[in-house]
Design a protein around this nucleic acid. Structure first.
Length: 560
RNA sequence: GCGAGCGUAGUGUAGUGGUUAUCACCGAGCGUUGCCAACGCUUGAACCCGGGUUCGAGUCCCGGCGCUCGCACCA
């Protein structure tokens, strides 16, 4: 897939390492596959992209930011389905140390061992004691979950309990649902975002930043009421057709409103989030002509998803999935509710109260209780199901099949009016999940420009101002005659301005310093020269045009 | 995980089993220079790790780690 005939990708990777954007982690110890450092330049860029991402979603007005632990108890990820979907259960032969998959060993003893939980596999394994395929012994170690999630133990020794490093941030939002619900005064829709690390013990990390074992992710869980007809304002994208690849049909260029109207996008909130994702990518400098949205085929959908669209970005590795926007239905909240017995629901009020009137029979506890003893509950159920015309005494069939005679003294008329003003329901969730590292890669890839200058390759990172790691580079024309003092002073003042990063560089020729700044994408270079000492003006150079204007020091400090 | 190729300063590289490991860019210092990778001098920096063969290993052999590619895997 990677196409690097002219060596551009190699030169880009080399530059990113040399200039401190991205470096293989722990390199002095031999390195570690799938783990990267953001260096002195890349670290700043990453935090800027995170901030822009946050701002984009907070604009919706009903979004909060939370942060939950990466260390996650076993039970949480079992409830979410990740233990089943993400792990293989391993056991080790105590005689020869050969590791085997527990479910494979038990294949002839269970119709579908793959679907068993860890405890069930453990039990069955102890029960069956299958022979080791390697040495035919029958002693097996405890069953452990292994594979795509990083195992860990929470706590020490015997009191430790199993856990994982999270494979996604989403579960933290689901387990916090009740706190979020109260925070938003019990009104949907609302959402929670989280930016943080996720972990997957990939079998074979590849392609640099594309498949990592520890990665930065940014996710929104947006909770909506499925009983309200979905709507979203898509008009801001009416003049911006998107490249869409719907499930099992060919690519089309359509506005989000049209695609939703035609039913290609199955939910308007998904369409809205596709739009916001597009805007975000554009804002951080992704070339939007190289962005497309692809709908998952039905057999490709994750175990929880009803509909899913990926944002794919084209770069040096081809088209890469960088964002997934999934309609998860009520899957997650229900799963955690089932696992814990805690209620994870929202209340909706009916337009009109629903009034049910009952006019029939019920039991008279004072007499039926002593008469039917343990059966009294079943008798009550049966009697309440009888029509009003019933006359007593009569024979009544209970739910357990028994027949009892119920007398007049055991019953009394049951007349009541039940008024229900609303009901509890499980909200649905729409989740945009961003792979920040993959996005950063493509920002760098799209910004990297090689231009011919005096028959040499001149490198410039045309980074958007919003994500550039350094805002200003300040140079004294020469480090003498007081120019170095003025320049250093300006640099200091810029650094003390909120949100501004400045870099001082006084070594080498002025041209060399411009080149160094261009290579890491500094948008503006400021040069202090002799004239500065006389009239307080400096030259301000634009990275992309290389044009210079002479402006006063004060105007720079005021505008920044 | 399997197979193939590769691993030398920050980057890119040269290197018949035998010097003080080559070259360029790069970084730092000094000087020169009135604004786009300029010049001069000085200087910094490397054989992935561990075993083995050998009088002697960057070079040959084995193992590990890492990188690239293919196959497998990939909510």
């Amino acid at each position: 897939m990677s196409d690097d005939k002219d060596g551009r990708l190699e030169r880009l990777s080399g530059m990113l390492k040399r200039r401190g954007f991205l470096l293989p982690a722990f390199e002095i110890h031999g390195g570690a596959k799938g783990l990267y450092d953001f260096g002195p330049v890349g670290g700043r860029m990453r935090s800027r992209i995170n901030q822009v991402w946050l701002d984009h979603w907070l604009k919706l007005g009903n979004i909060v930011e939370i942060s939950s632990p990466t260390v996650t108890p076993y039970a949480v990820l079992e409830a979410s389905g990740h233990v089943g979907e993400f792990s293989d259960f391993m056991t080790q032969c105590l005689a020869c140390e050969e590791a085997s998959r527990a479910d494979t060993l038990l294949e002839s003893h269970h119709p579908n061992p793959d679907a068993l939980k860890q405890s069930e596999l453990q039990e069955l394994l102890l029960d069956v004691k299958p022979a080791c395929p390697a040495c035919a012994a029958h002693d097996w170690s405890k069953v452990t979950a292994q594979n795509l999630m990083f195992n860990t133990t929470i706590g020490a020794g015997d009191s430790g309990r199993p856990g994982f490093l999270r494979p996604e941030t989403a579960q933290g939002m689901f387990t916090s649902f009740n706190a979020l619900y109260r925070h938003f005064r019990e009104r949907l829709p609302f959402g929670a975002v989280q930016i943080g690390k996720g972990y997957r013990n990939e079998i074979a990390p590849r392609q640099g930043m594309i498949r990592l074992r520890e990665f930065n992710m940014a996710e929104l869980e947006y909770f909506i009421n499925p009983h309200i007809p979905p709507q979203a304002d898509l008009t801001s994208w009416d003049h911006q057709p998107m490249m869409l690849i719907p499930d099992s049909s060919s690519p089309v260029s359509l506005t989000l409103a049209d695609a939703t109207e035609q039913g290609l996008i199955r939910h308007p909130t998904i369409a809205q989030f596709i739009g916001i994702t597009f805007d975000f990518l554009a804002h951080i400098g992704i070339d939007t002509t190289r962005v497309r949205f692809r709908q998952h085929e039905s057999d490709e959908l994750a175990h929880y998803a009803l509909d899913c669209w990926d944002a794919e970005i084209e770069g040096s590795y081809g088209w890469i999935e960088c964002v997934g926007i999934a309609h998860r239905g009520c899957y997650d909240l229900e799963s955690h509710e089932n696992a814990t017995g805690k209620t994870l629901r929202a209340r909706r009020e009916f337009d009109e109260p629903r009034i049910t009137t009952v006019d029939a029979w019920t039991i008279n506890g004072a007499t039926a209780g002593p008469a039917f003893k343990a059966q009294a509950g079943l008798v009550k159920q049966a009697v309440e199901a009888l029509p009003k015309e019933t006359t007593f005494p009569c024979m009544v069939t209970l739910n357990d099949g028994a027949m009892v005679e119920v007398g007049n003294e055991h019953v009394k008329p049951n007349q009541k009016t039940i008024k229900e003003t609303g009901e509890w329901y499980t909200p649905h969730v729409v989740e945009p999940a961003f792979g920040i590292d993959r996005i950063i890669w493509h920002v760098l890839d799209h910004a990297y420009q090689e231009v011919n200058k005096n028959d040499e390759i001149y490198t410039r990172m045309a980074l958007s101002d919003t994500v550039a790691p350094v805002d200003f580079a300040v140079f004294p024309l020469f480090e003498k005659d007081g120019m170095e003092v003025q320049a250093w002073d300006l640099h200091q003042q810029l650094c003390q301005t909120r949100g501004i990063v400045s870099m001082y560089d006084g070594s080498g020729s002025i041209g060399r310093r411009y080149a160094r700044a261009d290579e890491i994408g500094v948008p503006k270079c400021i040069t202090v020269d002799h004239q500065t000492l006389e009239d307080g003006t400096v030259t301000l150079r634009d990275r992309d045009t290389t044009e210079q204007v002479r402006v006063s020091l004060d105007s720079i400090l005021q505008s920044s």
